[in-house]
């Protein structure tokens, strides 16, 4: 096979490439072609969606009894093994080299674990102490308890306040966390770059909880954060120059 895979040739092997069953050399040559052909990347992307869809057709199957508890214990063990790292974990769009992202994810994961362990005088993740109680309870309704209540709200663009620009979730558990999905593009602000998230409290004080990236106005992000349901009122997203891009209000929270 020639090193120069044509588009016609790519169409012949694209299905196998998308399914991950193309042998090594052919795969390497096909990938090299994709590096320089956007249309074929799109074609293979569609084929990949078909492959994903095929897997999605597989029938579900209940795992053996006790599976849930074993998984939780494994997560506890994994968390304990990574405790002691210095940065809070965040969740958002993938960025940077994969290896670096994975390493960073592990670091951030462990740091959240460590912070929680310090706060409560225990080692490892809370799963260790909670797993027996939580997994022993009935599966459907028991997940909704007093400790699992969330604050929610909507983001609005600062430039077009009437148009929704995303959603906010804040969890006042231990540890607390926030999560947001942002779409400023629909509100006419296709901003790309870093944004700072600040939480607002009913007494007028604010707390910066972190920064994350938006691409063309779009992004998702979550992080561990101090969330007090009795005082948290809203959130604000600002550009590095201080421009307010969006604000959100937890309408069911404390009166302001």
């Amino acid at each position: 096979m020639s090193n120069d895979v044509t588009c016609e040739r790519l169409r012949e092997i694209g299905a196998e490439l998308a399914l991950g069953v193309l042998p090594g050399r052919e795969r390497a040559e096909a990938v090299a072609h994709l590096d320089r052909c956007a249309a074929c990347r799109e074609y293979v992307g569609h084929m990949t969606l078909v492959g994903d869809g095929l897997i999605g057709l597989l029938p579900g199957h209940e795992p053996p009894p006790g599976f849930e508890t074993r998984v939780m214990r494994a997560l506890e063990k994994d968390a304990t093994a990574h405790e002691g790292d210095p940065h809070p974990r965040t969740v958002g769009p993938a960025r940077g080299p994969v290896r670096g992202r994975l390493r960073a994810a592990r670091l951030r994961t462990a740091s959240a674990v460590a912070a929680f362990a310090v706060a409560f005088g225990v080692l490892g993740w809370a799963v260790g102490t909670a797993v027996e109680n939580v997994t022993a309870s009935p599966p459907a309704s028991s997940s909704v308890t007093a400790g699992s209540r969330l604050l929610t709200g909507s983001l609005t663009s600062a430039s077009a306040p009437a148009r929704p620009a995303g959603d906010l979730y804040a969890h006042p558990g231990e540890p607390g966390w926030i999560y947001m999905s942002v779409d400023l593009a629909d509100a006419g602000t296709p901003y790309s770059g870093q944004v700072r998230c600040t939480l607002e409290r009913s007494d007028g004080s604010t707390v910066r909880v972190g920064t994350f990236a938006l691409r063309n106005g779009y992004g998702e992000w979550g992080t561990a954060a101090p969330v007090d349901a009795t005082t948290l009122t809203g959130a604000r997203l600002t550009a590095p120059d201080g421009t307010v891009l969006a604000t959100g209000h937890f309408t069911g929270g404390p009166k302001t």
Binding site: W125, H171, A224
Partner: peptide
Amino acid sequence: AGLATGDPELA
């Protein structure tokens, strides 16, 4: 995202 922050109930 909640799973990532270590909430056992969410996990």
